[in-house]
């Protein structure tokens, strides 16, 4: 048997909390790789991200400046971390940091030789909530009709185009299903006060929510896709348990989106299966927190991403196990004050 190549990979999203980030599942997938021997550098924003303290998964961790500090500061910090650790690949997992990482991807490669597998800025922007209609048109997938509005009065003028119930969505977060104008205007104000304008008004599609975790190679090939239905949802709307589905049509739609958009990297597609077919609700530009289910079903997407980054040939997965469940659980790690002190005062652990 040949010796597995060793790789140092930096991974963010170590917030394995009740509304978890994808970092730890991605790391778990990489650590179980049959192909690579992976050393993990954790990248964190908070000192209480659980992944920081999971020493069997994360070999060494560093704090990053918040995305709002800007690109120059991020590059400075990555230069420092790279000097210590000689990172070969970075897998960012937070929505809010992706913009910056996409912007510096070329620089990371040319200045430090650090590789990434990320969507282009155009791909990243094309799937924003506010332009979902265009995304649907371009990729030939049904989306709930939606419109971006800036004032409550516009709600009145769109009543011709929409029927209640509607979904009122914030620019970044928050959504409410409303049954009439007075509810709609209530949520318009409530959500816009918190997240600002514009507000997205969306057709409410009834049906079952199904999600797909997928990965594209940027050339139009869908390397892997595993669909899942949530079986139990937390009060924050996150999956607590889910099951992998055998749904050829959903896989076909996913293949089509990945191929038409030439998506590069991991992603999560959120669909509603309704009586008249599948509607795409959202496309998240990174692996979901439940990506390990794909690994358990026989498709190690994070490993495939690592292979792509390092230039190994990657062939599309042909099959996956259906009827496999994931059931999330929480676990109280015990941590000495000293470890907390180290990450708090030195910024590394």
């Amino acid at each position: 048997m040949s010796i597995k190549p060793s790789v140092t990979v930096a991974v963010s999203g170590l917030n394995n909390i009740d509304s978890p980030g994808p970092g730890i599942p991605v790391i778990r997938a990489l650590k179980e790789s049959n192909f690579f021997n992976v050393r993990i550098i954790g990248l964190s924003y908070e000192t209480l991200e659980p992944g920081l303290y999971m020493r069997d998964l994360v070999d060494k961790s560093y704090q990053l400046p918040l995305p709002s500090a800007g690109i120059a500061v991020l590059l400075d910090r990555l230069h420092y971390i790279h000097q210590q650790e000689n990172i070969q690949v970075i897998i960012p997992n937070f929505d809010s940091e992706l913009y910056n990482f996409i912007k510096i991807a070329d620089q990371l490669k040319s200045e430090m030789g650090i590789l990434t597998v990320l969507p282009t800025l155009n791909q990243f922007e094309s799937r924003q909530k506010s332009v979902l209609n265009d995304f649907g048109k371009k990729n030939d997938v049904k989306v709930p009709f939606s419109k971006t509005i800036f004032s409550v009065n516009e709600l009145l003028t769109i009543e011709e185009e929409f029927n209640y119930p509607l979904v009122i969505k914030g620019k970044y977060y928050d959504a409410a299903v409303v049954a009439n104008f007075s509810q709609a205007s209530h949520y318009f104000h409530k959500i816009s006060n918190q997240w600002g304008l514009p507000i997205v008004v969306q057709e409410f599609v009834t049906g079952t929510e199904v999600n797909v975790t997928a990965i594209g190679d940027g050339e139009g090939n869908c390397i892997g896709a595993v669909p899942m239905r949530k079986l139990y949802i937390t009060d924050k709307g996150k999956a607590w348990a889910g099951v992998s589905l055998d749904d050829a049509q959903l896989i076909a739609i996913t293949n089509q989106i990945i191929s038409k958009s030439k998506w590069k990297g991991g992603c999560e597609l959120e669909f509603i299966r309704s009586n008249d077919g599948y509607y795409l609700l959202e496309m998240n530009p990174r692996f979901p927190a439940w990506v390990y289910l794909a690994v358990a079903c026989g498709q190690n997407h994070p490993e495939a991403l690592l292979k792509m980054a390092l230039g190994y040939p990657v062939k599309p997965f042909q099959r996956y196990d259906t009827g496999k469940l994931f059931i999330r659980y929480s676990y109280d790690q015990i941590v000495d004050m000293q470890q907390f002190e180290t990450i708090s005062t030195k910024g590394e652990l």
Binding site: Y45, E46, T47, L48, Y62, Q63, L64, P65, L66, S68, A69, A72, V73, L74, D76, R77, Y80, S344, G347
Partner: peptide
């Protein structure tokens, strides 16, 4: 510590 303000690691250019 951990007041949710920007952490200082890397924010030195400010």
């Amino acid at each position: 510590l951990n007041l949710g303000v920007m952490n200082k690691f890397g924010s030195k250019t400010e």
